[in-house]
Design a protein around this nucleic acid. Structure first.
Length: 377
DNA sequence: GGGATTTGACCCAA
DNA sequence: TTGGGTCAAATCCC
């Protein structure tokens, strides 16, 4: 069983705090658009917002799972990545079930080893009709070893282990569970890091995985996805070139959660007006570089395919820095806020939301701080 | 024939 | 006792 999320706060307090933070962000938005607004006022508002975020984090910090960001491979697929550094919920055989791994260690040792396995969860949304539901290609070779009907779940859970488990002793496993409410949404829980030679170039980052050509996506579909991702990254690079973020006045940069990069999804109604001094951002999503520290699980941020956001943030690049990358909060509607809180406080339904908080479709990770000096360089 | 998948049985922590 | 996780034989597929 998952370790229960233990909210040491009242949900209403958290909601109030988030709302207060949003109000502050809206005020900041107004000041950002007002040419006569004093710089000190903007800084004060930004500082208050950060304090509000810190307070929210303190409220949420009792959880066990850490949302490390989003990962996107293509339009139509959205991936939320969460990580739980230590697995306290593993079932007895989740990692040492094979005879090969039972023989050397005692069961208690194996259990401790298993509990130390890193565990993280992706939520992958796929487009219906693309034919990738069964594969959910994630670039490692997986072998299915079981399937179980889970109590209360509409769909069975599939159990996969690394194909190289026997040959190379790779202990990585994953579980694939289709969402009850949204059949296009899959929750993939990974356990253990790949130690096989088939791993990607960054063996310490949990999510990177390699395809299994024999039963995964067809080459055409995969190429299509990769091309789309590449196109997105080109957009990103263009934006990074055009946007210069000044951080010299940012006095709280050491605690600000900043994504690795920003991404404008080409399919949404974002409006990037490069011809004017300001950038009008109706959808300002974040895309990661997968190059964070070895202890983070692919802290990439992706574009959830939300649309119709009620808030259009118009900022100049220099002002952008004063908001420290958290301006996504400006786009959160009341409904979104309620959903965020609901998700963060409903451990029974979503055991991986421990430190999860989300603004306008982007989740932030309390353990994930980023020194933005040199960011966008 | 060999590797992958299916599925009923088994194990064991809660 | 229950239910999640895994085993392993049977079956499928290339």
């Amino acid at each position: 069983m998952e370790q229960a999320y233990n909210p040491q706060f009242e949900t209403k307090d958290l909601i109030n705090e988030v709302r207060q933070g949003r109000e502050l962000a809206k005020q900041l938005q107004i000041h950002l658009n007002a040419p006569t607004s004093a710089h000190g006022t903007r800084e004060y508002l930004a500082h208050k917002i950060i304090l509000s975020f810190d307070k929210i984090l303190n409220m949420l910090n009792s959880g066990t799972s850490i949302v490390t960001g989003y990962e996107s491979f293509a339009s139509g697929r959205e991936v939320r990545v969460t990580e739980s550094p230590n697995s306290f919920s593993a079932s007895p055989h989740s990692e040492d079930s094979d005879q090969d791994f039972r023989s050397s260690d005692s069961k208690s040792d194996a259990s401790r080893k298993r509990k130390a396995m890193p565990r993280w969860t992706k939520r992958v949304k796929i487009q219906p009709g693309t034919g990738i539901e069964g594969s959910l290609d994630d670039k490692y070779n997986w072998r299915k070893y079981g399937q179980k009907d889970i109590l209360g779940a509409k769909y069975p859970r599939g159990y996969y282990r690394c194909t190289h488990r026997h040959a190379q002793g790779c202990l990585a496993t994953k579980q694939v569970q289709k969402s009850d409410n949204d059949p296009t949404l899959f929750e993939i829980t990974y356990r253990g890091r790949h130690t096989c030679s088939d791993q990607s170039s960054n063996p310490t980052a949990p999510p990177p995985e390699r395809s299994n050509p024999s039963r995964s996506l067809t080459a055409n579909v995969r190429d299509h996805l990769q091309n789309q991702q590449q196109n997105s990254q080109e957009v990103l690079l263009n934006f990074k070139t055009d946007l210069k973020v000044i951080t010299e006045d940012l006095d709280c940069h050491d605690q600000i959660n900043v994504p690795t990069s920003f991404y404008f999804p080409s399919t949404s109604n974002n409006n990037i007006n490069n011809t004017s001094e300001n950038y009008s951002l109706s959808h300002f999503y974040m895309l990661g570089d997968n190059n964070f520290g070895s202890n983070t699980a692919s802290p990439s941020f992706v574009s959830p395919t939300t649309s119709g956001s009620n808030y259009n943030l118009s900022v100049s690049p220099s002002n952008l820095s004063n908001f420290g990358g958290n301006f996504q909060a400006l786009q959160a509607s009341d409904n979104e806020l309620n959903e965020m809180i609901s998700a963060a406080t409903s451990a029974a339904n979503s055991p991986t939301v421990g430190l999860n908080y989300q603004f306008g479709g982007v989740e932030f990770n309390s353990n994930f701080t980023f020194d933005n000096s040199g960011f966008f360089s």
